[in-house]
């Protein structure tokens, strides 16, 4: 990397961005903090409640259950999408028309509005009119995502795999393409097996992009709202009520401002701390690479 000069006047270049982001990030965040420590009896009269809401939320099973479901969801989709993404990247044509073709088709799901992704799977999975649901039903497999917990979970997981595996694959592919051909030639001279080429050449070279992929997939799956909401609405019962769905129910549905705000802050903190770990690892890898 090039040497940077120290120039504190650079702040003036950053300032417009800072003002804008502060307006759309800091003010709302402060509002949340404000609500989280106050209580109201309506009429816009607020009084100090201290950490009451936090204590209430921490002892509330509802939040823990949502968190548990959320961790399970993020864990499962990471466990599927990362290996599958690598597998797809390894098998992609390296250049030419088919390479472009694969890139374009694979990017398509990434560009579909999230509620439409939900709609697509809602339709696709229906037993009466959807290809997937109809086929499964015809094969005699019991499948009904609106009433059966297992079916609902499988549907939202397959949907997320469909939606985002391409992202992992695209990143891994970009990492693979940056490997100089000399590495493969050396491996061939040493008669390295396919597995060894992957383990000792391709995987180490992909670590950087894979960290980004894991970070992004973790963050985004942890915040997921629209897609499962459209497909299952959090049901059956609360079986697919993930953190964001629960939060929106609480804040916009029931208007429980205090608890919702306390919930929001803890939610944000969990994402922030886990992402910070990934970020630190990523930056360290970057330094090692440079």
């Amino acid at each position: 990397m090039q040497q940077k000069t120290t120039n504190h006047k650079a702040w003036f270049l950053v300032l417009p961005m800072l003002v804008l982001v502060a307006f759309s990030a800091v003010i709302p965040l402060m509002t949340v903090v404000n609500y989280s420590v106050q209580d109201t009896f309506g009429n816009n009269q607020f009084f100090w409640a201290g950490l009451e809401w936090f204590e209430e939320m921490l002892s509330d099973e509802r939040m823990w259950n949502a968190l548990q479901r959320q961790l399970m969801f993020s864990g499962i989709i990471l466990a599927i999408e990362i290996p599958l993404g690598i597998l797809v990247a390894l098998n992609m044509p390296k250049s030419g028309f088919w390479s472009s073709f694969c890139l374009v088709v694979m990017s398509l799901p990434l560009l579909i509005p999230w509620n439409v992704v939900g709609t697509i799977w809602q339709i696709f999975g229906r037993v009466d009119i959807g290809l997937l649901g109809y086929t499964l039903d015809a094969l005699g497999i019991h499948y009904n995502y609106t009433q059966d917990t297992i079916s609902a979970w499988i549907t939202i997981i397959v949907m997320d795999v469909w939606h985002w595996t391409s992202l992992v694959a695209l990143l891994a592919f970009a990492g693979l393409k940056s490997i100089p051909d000399a590495y493969y030639q050396a491996a061939r001279i040493d008669q390295a097996s396919r597995w060894k080429v992957f383990r000792f050449i391709e995987l180490p070279k992909m670590t950087g992009v894979l960290m980004i992929a894991i970070l992004l997939r973790f963050m985004d799956s942890f915040m997921i709202y629209t897609e499962p909401f459209v497909v299952t609405g959090g049901g059956p019962g609360n079986a697919t009520t993930l953190l964001s769905i629960d939060l929106v129910k609480m804040a916009l549905g029931q208007f429980d401002l205090g608890p919702a705000a306390a919930f929001s802050l803890m939610y944000f903190l969990v994402i922030l701390s886990i992402s910070w770990v990934f970020y630190t690892v990523m930056v360290n890898l970057d330094k090692k690479g440079a």
Binding site: I27, V248, A251, S264
Partner: peptide, 12 residues
Amino acid sequence: NRMAPPAVFALP
């Protein structure tokens, strides 16, 4: 800010 869940910010 990229990590902030939109659900947290919707009401504010």
